[in-house]
Simulated assay, not measured.
Amino acid sequence: MIRRLFRRQKSRPLTEAELAHRLIDPGYACTCCGEVLNAAAGAVWPTAPFGWTNPPAPYPDDAFDTAGRDVLTENYARRGGDTLLRAYLPIPVQGTETQVFLGVWCSLKVGNHARFRSAQARGDADRMGDMFSWLYTQLPAMTGPLLTEGVLTPYSQGRLPLYWITAEKHPLYRAQQDGLTASEILALYRDMGCGDLVDHLIA
Protein backbone atom coordinates (compact mmCIF):
# COMPACT_ATOMS: atom_id res chain seq x y z
CA MET A 1 0.00 0.00 0.00
CA ILE A 2 2.74 2.50 0.99
CA ARG A 3 4.72 1.59 -2.11
CA ARG A 4 1.68 2.21 -4.32
CA LEU A 5 1.00 5.55 -2.58
CA PHE A 6 4.52 6.83 -3.24
CA ARG A 7 4.30 5.63 -6.84
CA ARG A 8 1.13 7.69 -7.35
CA GLN A 9 2.76 10.78 -5.83
CA LYS A 10 5.85 10.66 -8.05
CA SER A 11 6.14 14.01 -9.84
CA ARG A 12 5.83 14.16 -13.60
CA PRO A 13 8.82 15.25 -15.71
CA LEU A 14 8.78 18.97 -16.44
CA THR A 15 8.23 20.02 -20.04
CA GLU A 16 10.63 22.43 -21.76
CA ALA A 17 7.87 25.05 -21.71
CA GLU A 18 7.46 24.76 -17.94
CA LEU A 19 11.22 24.81 -17.39
CA ALA A 20 11.50 27.93 -19.53
CA HIS A 21 8.67 29.60 -17.60
CA ARG A 22 10.34 28.90 -14.26
CA LEU A 23 13.68 30.08 -15.61
CA ILE A 24 12.55 33.47 -16.96
CA ASP A 25 9.76 34.40 -14.53
CA PRO A 26 11.31 36.86 -12.01
CA GLY A 27 8.55 36.07 -9.53
CA TYR A 28 8.72 32.28 -9.71
CA ALA A 29 8.87 30.74 -6.22
CA CYS A 30 10.31 27.30 -5.49
CA THR A 31 7.59 24.70 -4.85
CA CYS A 32 9.56 23.13 -1.99
CA CYS A 33 10.56 26.19 0.04
CA GLY A 34 8.73 29.23 -1.37
CA GLU A 35 11.91 31.18 -2.17
CA VAL A 36 11.62 33.56 -5.13
CA LEU A 37 14.45 32.48 -7.43
CA ASN A 38 14.78 35.19 -10.13
CA ALA A 39 16.99 32.81 -12.11
CA ALA A 40 17.26 34.74 -15.38
CA ALA A 41 19.63 37.56 -14.34
CA GLY A 42 22.84 37.12 -12.38
CA ALA A 43 22.39 33.50 -11.30
CA VAL A 44 25.91 32.98 -12.64
CA TRP A 45 27.97 35.66 -10.87
CA PRO A 46 31.73 34.92 -10.65
CA THR A 47 33.37 36.46 -7.60
CA ALA A 48 36.48 37.55 -9.51
CA PRO A 49 38.04 37.34 -12.98
CA PHE A 50 39.36 33.97 -14.14
CA GLY A 51 42.63 32.93 -12.51
CA TRP A 52 42.32 35.08 -9.37
CA THR A 53 42.65 32.47 -6.63
CA ASN A 54 41.29 33.40 -3.18
CA PRO A 55 40.24 36.94 -4.12
CA PRO A 56 39.78 39.47 -1.31
CA ALA A 57 36.44 40.92 -0.29
CA PRO A 58 35.54 43.61 -2.83
CA TYR A 59 35.94 47.31 -2.10
CA PRO A 60 33.25 49.83 -3.06
CA ASP A 61 33.63 50.94 -6.67
CA ASP A 62 34.80 54.43 -5.73
CA ALA A 63 37.94 52.91 -4.16
CA PHE A 64 39.23 51.61 -7.51
CA ASP A 65 41.78 54.41 -8.04
CA THR A 66 43.13 54.41 -4.49
CA ALA A 67 43.12 50.77 -3.35
CA GLY A 68 46.49 49.68 -4.76
CA ARG A 69 48.00 47.99 -7.80
CA ASP A 70 45.80 44.87 -7.66
CA VAL A 71 42.24 45.70 -6.60
CA LEU A 72 38.81 44.09 -6.68
CA THR A 73 35.70 46.24 -6.25
CA GLU A 74 32.03 45.37 -6.62
CA ASN A 75 32.07 45.91 -10.39
CA TYR A 76 35.70 46.54 -11.38
CA ALA A 77 39.10 44.88 -11.02
CA ARG A 78 42.75 45.56 -11.78
CA ARG A 79 45.28 42.73 -11.71
CA GLY A 80 48.63 42.27 -13.37
CA GLY A 81 48.13 45.29 -15.60
CA ASP A 82 44.66 44.19 -16.79
CA THR A 83 41.72 46.52 -16.17
CA LEU A 84 38.47 44.58 -15.90
CA LEU A 85 34.77 45.04 -15.25
CA ARG A 86 31.57 43.09 -14.77
CA ALA A 87 29.08 42.60 -17.58
CA TYR A 88 26.09 40.45 -18.48
CA LEU A 89 26.39 37.85 -21.24
CA PRO A 90 22.90 37.36 -22.72
CA ILE A 91 21.62 34.05 -24.09
CA PRO A 92 18.10 33.78 -25.61
CA VAL A 93 15.84 31.09 -24.16
CA GLN A 94 14.45 29.10 -27.07
CA GLY A 95 10.66 29.11 -27.28
CA THR A 96 10.42 32.49 -25.53
CA GLU A 97 11.08 36.15 -26.29
CA THR A 98 13.35 36.41 -23.24
CA GLN A 99 17.02 36.01 -22.44
CA VAL A 100 19.03 34.89 -19.43
CA PHE A 101 22.00 36.99 -18.39
CA LEU A 102 25.19 35.33 -17.15
CA GLY A 103 27.46 37.49 -15.02
CA VAL A 104 30.97 37.64 -16.51
CA TRP A 105 34.23 39.58 -16.19
CA CYS A 106 35.80 41.21 -19.23
CA SER A 107 38.59 43.64 -20.05
CA LEU A 108 38.96 47.14 -21.46
CA LYS A 109 42.07 49.08 -22.34
CA VAL A 110 43.19 51.32 -19.49
CA GLY A 111 41.92 54.53 -21.12
CA ASN A 112 38.56 53.05 -22.11
CA HIS A 113 38.19 51.54 -18.65
CA ALA A 114 38.68 54.97 -17.03
CA ARG A 115 36.27 56.61 -19.50
CA PHE A 116 33.70 53.87 -18.88
CA ARG A 117 33.87 54.24 -15.09
CA SER A 118 33.32 58.00 -15.38
CA ALA A 119 30.46 57.60 -17.86
CA GLN A 120 28.90 54.83 -15.78
CA ALA A 121 28.89 57.12 -12.72
CA ARG A 122 27.21 59.86 -14.78
CA GLY A 123 24.69 57.41 -16.23
CA ASP A 124 25.55 58.06 -19.89
CA ALA A 125 27.90 55.18 -20.73
CA ASP A 126 25.66 54.27 -23.67
CA ARG A 127 27.20 57.18 -25.60
CA MET A 128 30.53 55.34 -25.75
CA GLY A 129 29.28 52.74 -28.22
CA ASP A 130 30.60 49.20 -28.63
CA MET A 131 34.18 48.48 -27.53
CA PHE A 132 36.52 45.55 -28.13
CA SER A 133 36.93 43.41 -25.02
CA TRP A 134 38.44 40.11 -23.88
CA LEU A 135 36.24 37.73 -21.87
CA TYR A 136 37.87 36.89 -18.52
CA THR A 137 35.35 34.25 -17.38
CA GLN A 138 35.77 30.67 -18.57
CA LEU A 139 32.53 29.44 -20.18
CA PRO A 140 31.79 26.56 -19.79
CA ALA A 141 33.64 26.50 -16.49
CA MET A 142 36.00 23.57 -17.16
CA THR A 143 36.18 23.34 -20.96
CA GLY A 144 35.73 26.82 -22.41
CA PRO A 145 38.55 29.00 -23.77
CA LEU A 146 40.52 31.01 -21.20
CA LEU A 147 40.47 34.26 -23.23
CA THR A 148 37.91 35.06 -25.91
CA GLU A 149 37.38 38.08 -28.17
CA GLY A 150 34.15 39.98 -27.89
CA VAL A 151 32.36 43.30 -27.88
CA LEU A 152 31.16 45.25 -24.84
CA THR A 153 27.94 47.25 -25.25
CA PRO A 154 27.43 49.92 -22.54
CA TYR A 155 23.99 51.08 -21.40
CA SER A 156 22.59 54.18 -19.74
CA GLN A 157 21.54 54.83 -16.13
CA GLY A 158 24.41 52.85 -14.63
CA ARG A 159 23.16 49.48 -15.88
CA LEU A 160 25.66 46.69 -16.41
CA PRO A 161 26.94 46.49 -20.00
CA LEU A 162 26.30 43.48 -22.21
CA TYR A 163 29.02 41.22 -23.56
CA TRP A 164 28.80 39.63 -27.02
CA ILE A 165 31.23 36.88 -28.03
CA THR A 166 32.62 37.44 -31.53
CA ALA A 167 34.93 34.40 -31.70
CA GLU A 168 32.89 31.97 -33.79
CA LYS A 169 34.72 28.90 -32.43
CA HIS A 170 33.64 29.63 -28.85
CA PRO A 171 31.02 27.10 -27.63
CA LEU A 172 28.63 29.91 -26.66
CA TYR A 173 29.01 32.05 -29.80
CA ARG A 174 26.19 30.25 -31.59
CA ALA A 175 24.16 30.10 -28.37
CA GLN A 176 24.10 33.91 -28.26
CA GLN A 177 22.81 33.97 -31.84
CA ASP A 178 20.29 31.10 -31.80
CA GLY A 179 19.58 30.58 -28.10
CA LEU A 180 19.56 27.47 -25.94
CA THR A 181 16.74 25.35 -24.58
CA ALA A 182 15.86 25.76 -20.93
CA SER A 183 17.39 22.34 -20.22
CA GLU A 184 20.64 23.35 -21.87
CA ILE A 185 20.78 26.58 -19.87
CA LEU A 186 20.18 24.70 -16.61
CA ALA A 187 23.01 22.32 -17.53
CA LEU A 188 25.24 25.38 -18.07
CA TYR A 189 24.14 26.76 -14.70
CA ARG A 190 25.19 23.49 -13.04
CA ASP A 191 28.53 23.62 -14.84
CA MET A 192 29.06 27.15 -13.48
CA GLY A 193 28.42 26.09 -9.87
CA CYS A 194 24.72 26.93 -9.58
CA GLY A 195 23.47 23.40 -8.92
CA ASP A 196 21.45 24.42 -5.84
CA LEU A 197 19.47 26.94 -7.91
CA VAL A 198 18.80 24.34 -10.59
CA ASP A 199 17.55 21.87 -7.96
CA HIS A 200 15.06 24.47 -6.70
CA LEU A 201 13.93 25.29 -10.25
CA ILE A 202 13.11 21.67 -11.07
CA ALA A 203 11.66 20.74 -7.65
Rank of each mutant, 00 (worst) to 15 (best):
D61P: 01
E168P: 03
A40D: 12
A175V: 10
W52A: 01
A119V: 02
T53W: 01
L23Q: 09
E97D: 15
R86T: 15
D199G: 05
V151T: 15
T166W: 03
A77P: 00
V110R: 14
H170F: 11
D196G: 04
T31Q: 13
D70Q: 04
L102V: 11
T181L: 14
C30G: 10
C194W: 00
A48S: 07
G193P: 04
D130Y: 05
G123Y: 00
I202F: 02
F132W: 04
L85E: 04
R159T: 10
N54C: 05
V71D: 01
D65R: 06
V93F: 13
T143A: 15
L37F: 03
G95S: 04
R8H: 08
Y76T: 02
D196Y: 10
V93M: 14
V93S: 13
S118C: 04
G195P: 00
Q176H: 04
D62K: 04
R190F: 02
A167S: 15
H170R: 10
R190I: 14
G158W: 00
D62T: 06
Y163L: 13
R8Q: 11
A87C: 11
L139G: 07
A203S: 14
R4P: 03
Y59H: 15
G129T: 14
V71K: 01
T137M: 08
G103H: 13
S156T: 05
G158K: 00
N75K: 13
T73A: 04
H200L: 11
K169E: 15
R22Y: 12
S156I: 00
S107T: 12
G51L: 00
T83R: 02
G195E: 14
V110S: 08
T148K: 06
E74F: 08
G27M: 11
F116T: 01
R69K: 06
A48K: 01
A17E: 15
G81Y: 01
